[in-house]
């Protein structure tokens, strides 16, 4: 498992009360904690972890766990 993948998973587990095995299918608004405020906590965690500042359009694009990886690739981070 790549180092980036581990960091990426850690951000989700910091932002939401979820375990590693829950991550793969996880979608925005699937759990009460992943609401609009939780979403911004996730974004803050990702920005800190990867040292980036994300654009608003990219933030709204992170609709699920998988899609987030694609969004990060726009910042030249491969998961």
């Amino acid at each position: 498992m790549s180092e980036n993948n581990e960091k990426y998973q850690k951000c989700f587990m910091e932002a939401f009360p979820v375990q590693k095995q829950d991550l793969e299918g996880l979608k925005y608004q699937d759990i009460p904690e992943w609401d609009s405020i939780g979403h911004m906590n996730l974004v803050a965690a990702l920005e800190d972890e990867f040292g980036i500042e994300m654009e608003i359009d990219d933030i709204t694009d992170i609709s699920d766990f998988r899609k987030g990886k694609e969004v990060l690739s726009r910042y030249e981070i491969s998961i």
Partner: peptide
């Protein structure tokens, strides 16, 4: 506040 916080960095 929730809606607009997306436009901010660390409110």
């Amino acid at each position: 506040i929730r809606g607009f916080s997306m436009f901010g960095r660390r409110p």
